Simulated scan of single mutants.
Amino acid sequence: MDAQKVTLRKMTPPEYDAATEHREAETARELGKFMPEELARERAHQGTAQFLPDGLDTAGHHLVVAENEAGEVVGNAWIGPDPRRAAGTAGSAWLYDINVFPAFRRRGYGSAVLCAAEELVVREGWTSLGLNVSGDNEAAIALYRRNGYDVESMSLRKSVRQAPGINS
């Protein structure tokens, strides 16, 4: 299969609304593994408000759609400053979200969107691109590894319950 190529362009307001709805639903689904559903939805919404206070026009953030060579929108991405770094610290960008639409998955577009995102990062003067991925998202982990991403840190969790008859 030939490598896919995509071009990134700024989202339109309706594209932003759809991407935000999808991202918040996916975030709530992931958070729902660890907290009540209503709280997970609220946290997802709060994350958008915190990191994108001006929505589509939030300074330093790039909310983009990826178009293939035929002009079809195949996915989207959100790239901005690394939230783990102090404000004004140059060098590190963050891939807050990446999405390849179902009809275009398993066809090389994930790698193409990552490549285009990396090119945007270089144009903006950043020197690295970080991201988080859920540990059970094997397809995404494989995509990132194929594209040269290394594990920088790892968090683990185990649910434990107090044994009957033990007082705390």
Rank of each mutant, 00 (worst) to 15 (best):
R85L: 08
R85E: 13
R85Q: 14
R85I: 01
A86R: 10
A87M: 10
A87K: 09
A87W: 08
T89R: 09
A90R: 12
A90Y: 04
G91H: 03
A93I: 07
W94L: 05
W94F: 14
W94H: 14
L95G: 09
L95K: 05
L95W: 06
Y96V: 03
D97S: 13
D97P: 02
D97W: 13
D97K: 10
I98N: 04
N99E: 15
N99G: 03
N99P: 00
V100L: 06
F101V: 12
F101K: 15
F101P: 00
F104S: 06
R105S: 04
R105G: 06
R105F: 04
R106C: 09
R106E: 13
R106F: 03
R107G: 04
G108A: 07
Y109P: 06
Y109L: 07
G110T: 00
S111E: 11
S111G: 15
A112P: 03
V113C: 01
V113A: 00
V113H: 00
L114P: 00
L114Y: 02
C115R: 14
C115W: 08
C115F: 08
C115A: 12
A116S: 06
A117Q: 03
E118L: 05
E119T: 09
L120M: 11
L120D: 02
V121N: 02
V122S: 06
V122A: 13
R123M: 08
R123I: 01
E124Y: 00
G125R: 04
G125N: 06
G125Q: 06
W126N: 13
T127Y: 00
S128L: 10
L129V: 11
L129S: 12
L129N: 13
G130L: 09
L131P: 09
L131W: 10
N132G: 15
N132I: 06
N132D: 15
V133Y: 12
V133L: 11
V133R: 07
V133I: 12
G135H: 04
G135D: 06
G135N: 05
G135K: 01
D136V: 09
N137D: 11
N137Q: 09
E138K: 13
A139R: 15
A139L: 09
A139T: 14
A139E: 15
A140N: 07
A140H: 07
A140M: 08
I141M: 13
A142W: 01
A142Q: 12
A142R: 15
A142E: 12
L143E: 00
L143Y: 02
Y144V: 11
Y144W: 10
Y144F: 13
R145C: 01
R145E: 15
R145V: 11
R145P: 02
R146I: 05
R146Y: 03
N147T: 10
G148F: 05
G148T: 07
Y149M: 05
